[in-house]
Design a protein around this nucleic acid. Structure first.
Lengths: 343, 343
DNA sequence: AATAAAAATACAATCGATTGTATTTTTATA
DNA sequence: TATAAAAATACAATCGATTGTATTTTTATT
């Protein structure tokens, strides 16, 4: 009977009014009288009308949609950040399109193109491990699409970001191991062109320095921090001519696979080697021994990032660019770091 | 200098051709000569032109976008299903919009409205725990938007779905416990109005029946299978006047929290109580003892579901409705079920 | 060179909603 | 009741791309 895609024109025809009146009625404009408003709304409901956002957004040149690009949604940190982003967006009337770069630069490129083609009002990004330059973000800027980095960011001038203090967190993690009595601490780092890993590593070095401990390039293992990397790193550590008794890993995934590989090789954790991870993945509390790690409050970070982005969208004239928000990260002390209880 | 949002009209004006020619050139139509095509493409590139998909999709009445609704993306099963969906979609030229219902019916409703408003070409759904009726899906049907359920489905006539054989999996899990020597097996079930939990429970019953074991309503614990539920269920089990020596949980989350709660109470797993979970979350392999569980191949399920949906979109005339695809699920035998090694 | 056929391009309507302006209708006031 | 002011509604352009039809240009043939 009625067409399956109802438009305001259908409603207008049926009720003998103009489509502009229908549009205004459905948008609760004061220019339409209550009476006709009610007639129109009732009829729209009766016909199961659902606005075509493509048309609406095209005309308004505003989609009320945010794009989010993350390496992968299956990581606890990212899915909780997304939960935070969605919470804020939902409350402020924005939709969210989620894209995964799968740690690949090319896909990150494609993601941005898709988001631009869909005319999102702004973009939230945590970059892939392959991302070194930022030309694709310059494309966003040229199109005046605001974007905010969270966690994994690039050091681009005049760009906003929501971060934790990776230097401090790296320092805290390392110092914690030192206080627990570790004397030879290895560090698992990610790709060094990423600010977060660079900063965590600097924090590691600073802690060593403060406690007059020798720093050795040999004890820094840079990788993509995947499961296999933790295993590989451990295999190298075992072969070293001296004893390593502490590991600070820049993520939990590598920390956990290292922990397991050490156990397989007969090492006792934390007695022989203490371990501190990074991110507080759900698995960290459950593994045995439970993993001491840095808690990154993903939900909060997501919330704050979305708030910042939306404020930039709303006040596009004002100078909200280049705001850096630093969220508190904290050490979660568990069993894997209780190395030397001699105090 | 140049406006930040370039349109085909800008390009047309600059090159003194018609915008229709620009459109055809950029879409590689044979109606435009190679020479002008090249001029247009070069200029488009130079200006950083990016098609406005809102306009394009509006005109074409096709968005090449699929909507996905899942309870939450942080669950391993759902994020791997999404990975599968994206793989297929990406290859076939579709974008994906991901929505989370957060297990709430109201949000599932909103998700559908958003997807309809954005005129997605089809929808993939795994329903929330609150979802009992299906009026919101009838809305999709009325609008001729095809949809496919995966995993958590409703038993609606003439609807396609991609599932595992929950009955068989429930049977296998339970029989596995029986074979391992368990004599009193409890079952943690989800909301019984969900087909998957109903079927897993039926499988449980069937296995008991086959092995002449008594079935007792008292040993079925129905909940939302969250972390706390596993703890609560264990507390009830401990209080029973007889000994339970096996648990088959319809998801891993409850299985794991139960396992931990049992350990806290001094029970040995699997010697005192054997446990089998469901879904094979990443954590299950890592916990101690490692959890025997049913592996649900999320990636495959996602792939197949997306393929099925896209085939329905493509052949909208043909009768592809009401296709049920059953994916093989299999028991992953680990330590938590090695109860009685007396054979 | 004339002309038909074919190729290339231009014209114009359209998708569905929004919004500034114009017109009609209602209300209030003298 | 006439008329100005205000309220309600209609008209028409617009967002940017697509696409059927019409027109112009090119090519081929005699």
């Amino acid at each position: 009977m009625s067409p399956d895609k109802i438009t305001i024109h259908d409603i207008a025809r049926i009720l003998n009014v103009d489509s502009s009146t229908v549009s205004r009625a459905l948008n609760d404009s004061p220019r339409v009288t209550e009476k006709t408003k009610n007639r129109i709304i009732a009829k729209a409901h009766e016909l199961g009308y659902q606005r075509n956002d493509l048309a609406s957004n095209l005309r308004k040149n505003k989609t009320n949609t945010l794009g989010v690009i993350v390496p992968r949604i299956s990581r606890h940190f990212f899915s909780s950040a997304i939960a935070g982003i969605e919470e804020t967006s939902y409350n402020l009337g924005y939709n969210v399109i989620i894209c995964q770069s799968l740690e690949q630069l090319e896909r990150e490129h494609n993601n941005i193109n898709t988001l631009v083609a869909n005319r999102v009002d702004g973009v939230l990004v945590s970059i892939s491990m392959e991302t070194k330059n930022y030309e694709h973000f310059e494309g966003l800027r040229k199109r005046k699409i605001p974007f905010v980095f969270f966690d994994r960011h690039l050091d681009i001038p005049d760009t906003s970001s929501v971060l934790i203090d990776d230097f401090q967190a790296g320092f805290d993690a390392t110092e914690h191991l030192i206080i627990k009595g570790c004397e030879k601490i290895a560090h698992f780092s990610g790709p060094m062109h990423l600010e977060i890993y660079k900063n965590r590593c600097e924090g590691y070095k600073a802690a060593l320095l403060k406690h007059d401990m020798e720093f050795s390039e040999e004890l820094i293992f840079s990788s993509r921090l995947m499961e296999q990397d933790g295993v590989d790193n451990v295999n190298k550590i075992i072969e070293l001519p001296y004893k390593v008794d502490g590991i600070f890993s820049a993520n939990d995934v590598a920390a956990i696979s290292a922990l397991q590989q050490l156990k397989r090789n007969g090492y006792k954790i934390p007695e022989d080697i203490a371990i501190v991870g990074f991110s507080n993945e759900g698995i960290s509390a459950v593994i045995e021994p439970s993993l001491t790690t840095i808690n990154q409050p993903g939900f909060d970070i997501g919330k704050r990032a979305a708030e910042l982005l939306i404020s930039q969208i709303t006040n596009s004239n004002k100078n909200f660019i280049n705001e850096k928000i630093v969220i508190q990260a904290s050490l979660v002390e568990r069993d894997s770091s209780q190395h030397n209880m001699a105090f």
